[in-house]
Every structure is written in structure tokens, then in C-alpha cells.
Design a protein around this nucleic acid. Structure first.
Length: 282
DNA sequence: TTGGTTGTTCGTTC
DNA sequence: TGAACGAACAACCA
């Protein structure tokens, strides 16, 4: 499930290979997921690859940001142009790990194809939740990135909200980029019960939680994001991230807390799987 | 076969 | 009036 670190990992990899490439044409296979007309991008070249929250943005110049939202199962695959022997020189993959990472492109779940002079970009999505849009309004409505704010600003964002702290962390209009995995782990770092209302934390908890958010996101980026545990074949090929080896509480139901005193508990909060240690998260 | 899973939207309730 | 809540969306897998 791509969150900020997973998208940032794709961004870093993609920018290396796609910067300067000119878009020759594109093909939309699933019109439902494309909002607006992409024709204005034709014959424009990539200036840079950016990210806001969980949205990847390919910058084609002033006023031309092409946004990709991966939702749960979106992925991008970029293949450098084939050489004279028809061998793919390099493939960059990112997003939700599936066998499409290693299969031939386009695949069963390919929703749109972008043909560049230097290679081909495939947007795949098992479901039809993800979307592609130029200058998406969604991005304008996002709250600040965790890395852009200080502790004081963080506190001001939370202190008026009477909702469970974990749900607030995941609210993109308040702070952008944090999804279920990192929200769970950040609460553990902050020693906060995910159910605690955002306006009731102690001063120390606000402090520890802010540091925790930064820490788990940095770790996520450091390890190249998290790859689903059931996608072992992807790990074998070295294509997946490894944050999953560093989960604090996420997915650890029934296991001993990393602080050594307590068993990780799972319950549903806001319709989402929530993991915490009742001993150390108050 | 049904239910669980996920991020975001949107309609409803408080 | 705004905040909070919860169902819906799509498709896969256990």
C-alpha cells in the first residue's frame, strides 16, 4: 500500500531515468481512471519528478504537473527504450508489488501507457481506484508534509481535534502522506494509544509522536518502502522495499512488543486494522 | 463463498 | 455550521 515513503522511492528512481524525456504519445486503456484531457502533454519533456503526500507528479513545465494516485494497488513501471537486440535495458518498478513487476508489459492491469523518446511508462492498477490527472485539485487540498513542519505547527494541527489520533494522522487534508502502516508505527513510537483523541495527548506525547512520525517515514524511505509479505518472489529479485522488516507494530498481532513488555493487540478503528501495545501505548 | 483488506469520496448523523 | 462517522468503491485472496 503505497504511502509517502513508497511514492518517494518511486520518485527517486523514476527521476533518474525519465528526466529530459519527451512524450511522443500515450494510450489510455481504462478511461475511467483518467481525469481530463492529456493531449496538452504531447511533445513536452520531463523537467523533474515531484511528490506531494502520496501523489506522484511528473513536471512537464509551468502549469503541467501530471499527477498519479496509486491508492492501494497502483504501480508504475518504466522501461528504457529497447536496444538493437530488442532487449530491455532497464526497468524501474514501484508501487503495489505484484507479479506485474516482473511480467511483460503492457499487462492485464495496465491502465495507461506513456510513450517517451527514451522509454515507456506504464500505469498499472489491479483495481480501478487509482487515477491520473493534470494539476489535480486533490493536491491543492492536501495538508503540509510532515517533513515541512516543526513540532509547534504539528501540535497546532492536532490540538483542536476530537477524533482518535491515528485517524487524524491519516487525514490527508491535515497532514499529507501518512497511511495505515506508518500511522500505526508512529503511534507506537509516540507511546500513544491510537484511540486517544487528538486533543487529549500529553505534552510529551505530542513531542514523541512528532518525532515518531518523522522517524518512521525516514525509515520507510531509507528501506525503500514496504513490500507486502506475501510477495516473496519480488524480494528474491531484489525489487521490493524492506521497511516491512522494521515494522514497529503493524502486522505484529499476537507478537511481543518490541519494548519487551506486552503483546501487540489488533482492533478495527475507522474501519482499518489498528495495531498497538496496551502496555506501553497509553 | 463470503469477508477482510486498502485510501479517498460522499452522504448522513451528531 | 462544521465536525465526525460510516458506507461505498474494485478486485483479489484466504
Amino acid at each position: 500500500m503505497p504511502e509517502l515513503p513508497e511514492i518517494e522511492t518511486v520518485r527517486l528512481q523514476l527521476e533518474r531515468v525519465i528526466k529530459g524525456a519527451e512524450l511522443q504519445g500515450f494510450k489510455v486503456i481504462s478511461p475511467k481512471i483518467v481525469r481530463g484531457n492529456l493531449d496538452v502533454l504531447k511533445y513536452k519533456s520531463v523537467k523533474s519528478v515531484k511528490r506531494r503526500g502520496k501523489v506522484l507528479l511528473i513536471d512537464f513545465g509551468p502549469g503541467l504537473l501530471l499527477g498519479f494516485h496509486f491508492k492501494m494497488t497502483g504501480q508504475l513501471i518504466y522501461e528504457k527504450i529497447q536496444d538493437s537486440r530488442f532487449k530491455v535495458q532497464e526497468r524501474i518498478v514501484g508501487g503495489h508489488p505484484t507479479e506485474d513487476f516482473v511480467g511483460p508489459m503492457p499487462g492485464k492491469h495496465t491502465r495507461a501507457i506513456f510513450n517517451f523518446d527514451k522509454g515507456t511508462l506504464y500505469f498499472n492498477d489491479q483495481r480501478l481506484f487509482g487515477w491520473i490527472e493534470i494539476n489535480p485539485k486533490f493536491v491543492e487540498d492536501l495538508g503540509p508534509e510532515p517533513f515541512e513542519i516543526d513540532e509547534d505547527r504539528f501540535l497546532k494541527l492536532l490540538v483542536k481535534l476530537k477524533r482518535p489520533i491515528k485517524l487524524v494522522l491519516m487525514e490527508q487534508g491535515i497532514i499529507s502522506g501518512i497511511g495505515n502502516i506508518y500511522a500505526n508505527d508512529a503511534c507506537w513510537e509516540g507511546k500513544v494509544n491510537p484511540r486517544r483523541l487528538a486533543n487529549t495527548l500529553t505534552a510529551k506525547q505530542y513531542h514523541d509522536l512528532f518525532e515518531g512520525v518523522i522517524k518512521v517515514l525516514r525509515d520507510g524511505i531509507k528501506y525503500g518502502g514496504a513490500t507486502a509479505a506475501d510477495a516473496k518472489y519480488i524480494d528474491l529479485r531484489g525489487l521490493g522495499g524492506h521497511y516491512q522488516d522494521h515494522f514497529r507494530v503493524y502486522g505484529r498481532e499476537g507478537e511481543e512488543c518490541l519494548r519487551g513488555d506486552g503483546i501487540v493487540n489488533k482492533f478495527v478503528l475507522g474501519g482499518r486494522g489498528t495495531y498497538y501495545c496496551p502496555k506501553c501505548q497509553k
